[in-house]
Design a protein around this nucleic acid. Structure first.
Length: 577
RNA sequence: GCGCCUGUAGCUCAGUGGAUAGAGCAGCGGCCUUCUAAGCCGUAGGUCAGAGGUUCAAGUCCUCUCAGGCGCGCCA
């Protein structure tokens, strides 16, 4: 029995019962977590819709299903309620045994999936010659969380940083570099100088058509393979990657591939020719584009070649899909990109379907980051907020609290904790909200130690760690879980234990729906249940040894759940704060 | 003009067609002699933007209206 995926296990059992009792081929049991604790832990809703179809009283149908239902000891006897719901209660004895055993397992009983998929996740993707700013935060943090969660579930995942390292901006940059670069500034702050040059080149180009033409010439030379320009381009890319790497290091984000747009450069010509040959793309006003006649898709064509012969973003994205199919045998490709690009992705996905490829493609689109005032998040003078300064500020705001709470730690330790709590808070605030809407960034809210915040979860983990430290102090040895059943007596113990067995269900849902906030909600609810248990039940001071061992095992299971959950979200763990 | 997204408690947000819509913050009232009080417990707060419709059942699905955000051929 897979104790890690209860929803799936019980759903299969319910489906079997419905098949046998009602003679249906593929019934949908609609098994869900109960909407209210009074109704038990899970409910089967699938009988109700069948009443009309089978022309029978829904409660009678439910009775037949219940008679055929065998949960193998996971649940107590099912109850029929209301118009025909079947309510399932987990058997406390089963929970006590299953969780007692799972606490000894590093994966808390959540086995890797039996049929792993090959999944590519395209995320972060900063542009060359631009410093990473808050606009990159959501893609980076959400993409990273999806990579880690899907990997934990057992899939083969490639997290790919699809850098914007090719395109018209390089003509401008090369032009400005050749005339305006400041070597001193370049040595002191390479990416800052590139950013300045790019801005300068863009302004000059707008003001002066001759400059714009000169930029195009530089671009043409680069594309033709001119040695000097190619060397410059390589240098720009190296500087930009290095700057991005510093931010990734602070966020502890890693990629499996860094295949920027330039990586696909050689394929673009073939992509366009292939689409023309198959008449999927046509010439339109001198350019080449693909037209769609599908509801929900823009009427404007998806352009893959400009009238001047240059390729576009779309061309490169098509080539990228083909590469991912060839190189990774991708079953699923996920783009974690700003929702404003949803038209582009709808057209891309439609193109891939027209080309006949069989791959599941999803756009995880997220909203903008707004300030607490509801307007786009900017610095006081209206500039974009740099990602590194955002992390600096988080750290600076947390540090006084750490020094106050833990004055005897070394300054180095205090800074290390402030760094982890600060970046964890920033990341968690981003992950905890549903993706689709714009997200309001509010320092006071995200750094608060209560409510649904990173610090609250980290603090809860600290409490678990603290119990184990105190155990060593009092009993002279580390506590070791032995896998024996728990003893669940207090309401707080039961609630905690019954919730801990839902980790697998939760991770499964995140993997399906690609919404990390589902995991955040779960961990937050878990933290609340743990803290209620912690306040009510003395752990080390329990009345007898058996209760103490059982409670310590509960702490251990909670600790492991946080380790797994926070590591999937990539929120740093601390053992003190 | 066309398309996409959003509208739930004073504020910030959850809510998988299912039973009496939930959290946090802010407010009010309690709890440290005891494993970290960055915590816990209690209390109060709702025309789910509005109107129709589908359904045994609608905050959730469909249509329209209103309000806000975003996007709409050779940028990425």
């Amino acid at each position: 029995m897979d104790a890690g995926r209860l929803n799936q296990t019980l759903s299969e059992m319910a489906a079997r019962a419905m098949r046998e009792a009602l003679g249906l081929e593929s019934p949908n049991p609609e098994l869900r977590p109960a909407t209210d604790a009074r109704f038990g832990d899970y409910q089967i809703n699938g009988v109700l819709p069948l009443a009309k179809e089978l022309k029978e009283n829904p409660r009678k149908l439910a009775e037949k299903v219940v008679a055929a239902l065998d949960t193998g000891g996971i649940c107590l006897a099912p109850e029929i309620a209301g118009p025909g719901f079947i309510n399932l209660r987990l058997d406390p004895a089963w929970v006590a045994t299953a969780l007692g055993a799972a606490a000894a397992d590093a994966r808390l009983g959540v086995a890797p999936v039996g049929d792993p998929q090959s999944i590519v996740i395209d995320f972060s993707s900063p542009n060359v010659a631009k410093r990473m700013h808050v606009g990159h935060l959501r893609s980076t943090v959400i993409g990273d969380a999806l990579v880690r969660t899907l990997k934990f579930l057992g899939h083969t995942v490639v997290g790919d940083n699809h850098l914007g390292d090719w395109g018209t901006q390089f003509g401008i940059l090369i032009w400005a570099w050749k005339r305006e670069r400041d070597e001193a500034a370049l040595a002191a702050d390479p990416i800052g100088e590139l950013e300045r040059l790019y801005k300068l080149g863009t302004e000059r180009g707008k003001a002066d058509p001759e400059v714009a033409e000169a930029c195009r010439q530089e671009l043409a030379k680069l594309q033709a393979g001119d040695a000097e320009n190619k060397a410059l381009w390589e240098r720009f890319v190296a500087i930009s990657k290095e700057a991005a790497a510093t931010v990734y290091e602070r966020l502890e984000v890693e990629f499996d591939a860094w295949h920027g747009e330039s990586f696909y450069h050689d394929r673009l010509h073939g992509v366009v020719e292939g689409l023309l040959e198959r008449a999927l793309a046509v010439e339109t006003q001198g350019a080449i584009g693909i037209f769609f006649d599908e509801p929900g898709l823009p009427e404007t064509p998806y352009l893959i070649r400009k009238s001047d012969g240059a390729f576009l973003y779309a061309t490169s994205d098509i080539a990228t899909v083909e590469y991912r199919l060839e190189a990774y045998g991708a079953d699923r490709i996920i783009y974690v990109v700003d929702v404003r690009q949803s038209d582009h992705f709808r057209q891309l996905f439609a193109t891939i379907r027209k080309m006949g490829y069989d791959v599941k493609m999803e756009h995880v689109g997220f909203g903008m980051m707004l300030g607490a005032d509801g307007r786009p998040f900017k610095t006081r003078d209206g500039g974009t907020v740099r990602l590194d300064s955002l992390l600096d500020e988080a750290e600076a705001r947390i540090l006084p609290l750490v020094t106050e709470r833990w004055p005897d730690a070394s300054e180095e330790e205090q800074r290390a904790i402030a760094r982890k709590v600060g970046s964890g808070a920033v990341k968690y605030a981003d992950l905890a909200q549903n993706l689709t809407t714009d997200y309001k960034f509010d320092w006071d809210k995200l750094l608060a130690a209560d409510g649904n915040t990173g610090p609250y979860l980290q603090y809860t983990l600290v409490r678990c760690a603290s119990v184990f430290r105190e155990h060593v102090a009092r009993f002279g040895a580390e506590f070791a879980v032995d896998g024996s059943p728990l003893r669940l007596e207090a309401d707080e113990e039961k609630e905690l234990a019954f919730f801990l067995v839902r980790l697998g269900d939760t991770l499964e849902r995140v993997g399906e729906q690609l919404r990390p906030h589902i995991l955040c909600e779960y961990l937050y609810a878990l933290a609340r249940k743990f803290n209620a248990f912690y306040a009510k039940c003395s752990i080390l001071g329990a009345d007898d040894e058996a209760t103490r061992r059982s409670r310590l095992t509960l702490v251990q299971a909670t600790y492991r759940t946080f380790e797994i959950g926070l590591s999937c979200l990539n929120i740093p763990r601390v053992s003190r704060m």
